[in-house]
Structures are given as structure tokens and as C-alpha cells.
């Protein structure tokens, strides 16, 4: 990632870019979408969060202590696990733990393998590599987990009669729920598969764009992108399988019963 570096953006230019959001505000008020307030809040949050993170990252990249770096990675994983659950329509006791265990296991396995086996920075925990890679893996795993978890809970409710019919005919809980578990995993994988399908044709991912703006060779940037997409696909699959199976175990019992009374709708 060497090169002349991208042209710096001054404070004035940054403020100018904020004018672009006026376009959204105008549309919202014209069509009475009621999005004015959330748009302002979202843009303000985005600006503040990113400016803060810029500062944090400058500090972080100077850190040599693996515990500091891994600690931050842990915090990121926790936030991803929480937000994955936030977007589902129903909850059960233990859903946050399920999500946390799945996100942590999937992202640390995959990011660890990529750092130690594929990219091999020195040292392996170098923040400049670990944090952005982990961030991209987490951001995508969290989408998959949200979708898969939500689909499993909704389809168990919608097909409750079918599941119990199977149980009554002598099916084990796994035989009765297998199709719905598979469906949850399939749905959670769709965004990842879709994005790989059109990668480079429709979307130039942010990290690649960044490397190219920095003056990096596009061919090198593309290689990073390939590694990252494989990491994302693997982590999403692992996290999904784990979270959907854990949810299935929570919503059935050892007596091969459906325990949907454990589900609460989010008010």
C-alpha cells in the first residue's frame, strides 16, 4: 500500500460535502417521508463516529501491545453481536449470548487464519491489518446472522403446525425442524453470495477504492479484495450455522417439543 497518497480533504471541502445531505432532506420534506429527523441524526452520528474513529485508529496503529489490539477487536465483536440481534423481530432468553458466541467464534477463526496463514503481517496482530479486516468480516457476518436468525424464528412460528405434525408422526426435533434450519442458513447467505456475483461489475468495494485512491496498484488491491470476500463468506457461513443451530436448540427441548412460548415479540 505504497504510493503518493490520496489528495487530502480540507475542513472546508468536508463541510461542502455535507451539503449533499440537503438533497435527501429536500426529498424527504417534499414527499413528506418524515425522514428529516432520522436523516439528520444518522448523518451527525456518521460524521462524529468517523472523526472519532480516525483519531482512535491513529492512536491504535502506534500500539505494539497485542492485548490492546485484541481487546479492541473483542469490543468490536460484541457490538456486532448486539446489533445483529437488534434487527430481529423477536427475542428469546439467551439470544444475545448465542449471537456473541457465534460472532466471536466465526470472526476470530477466520480472521486469525487469514492473518497467520495468508496475509502474514509482522507481527501477526499488527493493528493496521487486524482491525480493518476484522471490521469487514464482522460487518458482513452481522448481516447474515440477523437475517438467518430472524428467518428461523419467523418460520418456526409460521410452520409450527407442520413441525408439530412431524413430531406427532415420530420425527425427532431435528427431523421436524431440519428444513427450517436449512432455510434460515440459506437466507442468511444470500447477500454474501449476491455481492460476490456482481463484485467488480456493479460494486467496487470500499477497501479496494481506498487502496486505489492511495495510489496502490489496482491489481494488488484486487487481490486483497478476493481474500477479504473469501474471509467474509467463510465467517458468515460459520457464524450463521452456529447462531441458527443454537437458536434451534433454544426453541426446542430435549423432550422433542417446540418451545415457541420462549419467543417474545419486540415491542
Amino acid at each position: 500500500m505504497s504510493g503518493a497518497g490520496a489528495l487530502p480533504i480540507s475542513d472546508g471541502s468536508l463541510a461542502l460535502s455535507a451539503l449533499l445531505i440537503l438533497l435527501n432532506l429536500a426529498i424527504s420534506s417534499l414527499l413528506r417521508l418524515g425522514l428529516g429527523r432520522p436523516l439528520l441524526l444518522a448523518s451527525t452520528r456518521m460524521v462524529v463516529q468517523l472523526l472519532l474513529v480516525g483519531g482512535v485508529l491513529e492512536w491504535l496503529f502506534r500500539q505494539q501491545n497485542p492485548l490492546t489490539i485484541l481487546g479492541l477487536g473483542l469490543v468490536m465483536a460484541c457490538i456486532a453481536a448486539l446489533s445483529a440481534v437488534q434487527r430481529t423481530r423477536r427475542r428469546f432468553a439467551g439470544i444475545y449470548w448465542n449471537s456473541l458466541v457465534s460472532v466471536l467464534a466465526a470472526s476470530s477463526l477466520v480472521t486469525g487464519a487469514a492473518l497467520l496463514g495468508i496475509i502474514r503481517p509482522q507481527p501477526w496482530f499488527a493493528a493496521q491489518y487486524l482491525i480493518p479486516l476484522l471490521g469487514m468480516v464482522l460487518g458482513n457476518t452481522l448481516n447474515g446472522i440477523s437475517l438467518g436468525l430472524d428467518r428461523l424464528m419467523e418460520s418456526l412460528l409460521a410452520h409450527r403446525d407442520q413441525v408439530e405434525l412431524r413430531l406427532c408422526l415420530g420425527a425427532s426435533r431435528w427431523e421436524a425442524c431440519r428444513e427450517l434450519v436449512a432455510e434460515g442458513i440459506r437466507v442468511g447467505m444470500i447477500p454474501t453470495i449476491n455481492s460476490m456475483m456482481v463484485m467488480g461489475l456493479v460494486s467496487l468495494p470500499g477497501m479496494m477504492t481506498g487502496q486505489i485512491l492511495q495510489g496502490g496498484a489496482p491489481t494488488a488491491a484486487v487481490r486483497y479484495q478476493i481474500v477479504i470476500l473469501f474471509m467474509i463468506a467463510a465467517a458468515t457461513a460459520l457464524g450463521l450455522v452456529s447462531v441458527v443451530l443454537l437458536a434451534y436448540l433454544h426453541l426446542t427441548s430435549l423432550d422433542h417439543q417446540l418451545r415457541l412460548e420462549r419467543l417474545r415479540e419486540v415491542p
Partner: peptide
């Protein structure tokens, strides 16, 4: 084991679904 129990004590719901 519950599957074998339910295959012997067989419950038929009032509006049974079909596959």
C-alpha cells in the same frame, strides 16, 4: 424416547396440516 413414544401415543390435531 419421545419419537417412539409419540409414534405409539398418536395425537391427531383437529385441523391437521398436510405436507
Amino acid at each position: 424416547t419421545l419419537p417412539r413414544y409419540r409414534a405409539q401415543v398418536a395425537y391427531l390435531a383437529q385441523r391437521p396440516p398436510v405436507f
